[in-house]
């Protein structure tokens, strides 16, 4: 059931450089308790820096280690407030859902999701949280509201554009980057969403949230593509259409 029934408008931000890195979010007057979840699979080289930087802007950072084999878990335990370690690999959809459960069960107001590969800049978190404080239920960090998307390969850009167009058409949205994993949510929304597929969770989640009437907005967040975790090649692009059809059918028929 929707908790807010009239919210479908999309509220894109224009590119902005007004990052407030000097004032961590949990020191602000919003009184929102914020959990950051960092889904990670074999990110031992970057996870410590991501967690350390993210912890400046939130109340608690929990790493969801998806059965990494490179020591990600031990590196995360050195710096994170908590680590949830999957006994077997569940895919990024399973990892983020585990993080959502932590946020809901520990009764945080907001959950921020940020990749463990360093692609997302934690300094952008305050701007995501500002939109939550303004009344949004889901805030998506978009690379298409700044110039960072130009660094991506043509195939990857085309793929993201296509799937974003499809979600917009199906859900009546006007977002620019549906595949972005840099997001902030109210836990009220997360508690109302179904468990997503282990792959293509972002599409399913966005469609479902829109269908349930939640307010989805975007803010500009630069995302450089040159990280180990950024994999979107031709093979991935070719696999997307049937998976997209499956996801779309699932959302339209059963959610």
């Amino acid at each position: 059931m929707a908790t807010q029934s009239t919210r479908t408008a999309t509220d894109n931000d224009t590119p902005s450089d007004d990052r407030d890195t000097a004032r961590p979010m949990h020191d602000r007057d919003t009184e929102l308790s914020v959990l950051a979840i960092v889904p990670a699979y074999n990110e031992a080289g970057t996870i410590a820096d991501v967690v350390a930087e993210t912890s400046r802007y939130v109340d608690k950072v929990v790493v969801i280690d998806d059965a990494s084999t490179d020591g990600t878990e031990s590196r995360a335990r050195e710096v994170a407030d908590g680590v949830v370690s999957h006994p077997r690999n569940m895919g990024v959809g399973g990892a983020v859902h585990t993080g959502y459960l932590v946020g809901v069960r520990e009764e945080f107001d907001v959950v921020v999701q940020i990749d463990g590969d360093g692609q997302h800049d934690p300094a952008d978190i305050p701007r995501l949280l500002e939109r939550i404080a303004d009344g949004a239920d889901m805030v998506i960090g978009s690379r298409f509201l700044n110039d960072s998307y130009r660094e991506y390969s043509l195939v990857r850009r085309a793929g993201i554009r296509f799937f974003t167009w499809e979600v917009n058409a199906l859900a009546g949205l006007d977002i620019t980057d549906v595949t972005s994993g840099f997001r902030a949510y109210t836990t009220a929304l997360l508690a109302d969403l179904s468990r997503p597929e282990n792959s293509h969770w972002a599409l399913e989640q966005t469609l479902e949230a829109s269908r349930k009437g939640y307010r989805i907005v975007e803010v500009s967040t630069p995302m450089p593509p040159e990280t180990d975790g950024s994999q979107f090649d031709l093979g991935t692009f070719l696999k997307y259409p049937p998976r997209m059809i499956k996801t779309t059918m699932k959302v339209l028929l059963f959610r």
Partner: peptide, 17 residues
């Protein structure tokens, strides 16, 4: 199986916390 994997991981996390 996915649910059990998730719950097992969360139980360990709760215990550690």
């Amino acid at each position: 199986l996915s649910d059990l994997t998730q719950e097992l991981a969360l139980l360990r996390y709760d215990l550690e916390q």
